[in-house]
Amino acid sequence: MTSAAAGEPLVRLAGVNKWYGDLHVLQDIDLTIDRGEVVVVIGPSGSGKSTLCRTINRLESIEQGEITIDGTPLPAEGKALAALRSDVGMVFQSFNLFAHKTILENVMLGPVKVRGKSKADAEKRARELLDRVGVGHQADKVPAQLSGGQQQRVAIARALAMDPKVMLFDEPTSALDPEMINEVLDVMTSLAREGMTMVVVTHEMGFARRAANRVVFMDGGRIVESSDPETFFTAPSSDRAKDFLSKILNH
């Protein structure tokens, strides 16, 4: 459909700027993400990393610059934007499962309402995905009856049900009890291994080391550093990254 050649980046941000009033939250962001690449975005709170993630499917608008996905510039609104969003999976910090629907209905909703799949097809695929993330036996419960870790795995299944080209994870484990973090990270790691293109905003340095192709370090609305995880964690080039790492890795 699109003219993007296989070698072209799947997601491209060029000269992206965003302000909240006087606050310049994203400053001259240039970032490209290739097919199958796993990019982990880290940085102190308030650095703009969540905002960056949310601009990629335009849950946040931008004032300047351009974002393209698979060669198509992100539309400003309307049907074209909705269509593009359907190809971009999103996993939120607070899960955001639809509270009035069962787990199964949560995963079926997108394929039925957006893709126009039959209920039977959507249900079959939804059950496969729920089994895959290990919550198949909970399909008929409502979200509030599940633990946070289980809810987040359902949220991943819900995003996968749309067969997205790229998955965005906005601090997917930050709202979880410590013992539930790994069950979610395991699912994400296996996705990464299978070649899913992923942008992951997280504080989980272990995941970054294990699964990332590239680590992007942000501070004050800028991308300060972008390198492979080994280089970033052992020999960061910026003082700001050195300072950040010394604070989080020492304990």
């Binding site: 190809d87 939120f92 749309m162």
Partner: peptide, 25 residues
Amino acid sequence: PGQAEAARALGLGFGQTLTTVVLPQ
């Protein structure tokens, strides 16, 4: 607000988001 955001992120339009996710709740 996360409920509507999740619906929009799936590709539902304004009307669909309202009728299938927001208004029922």
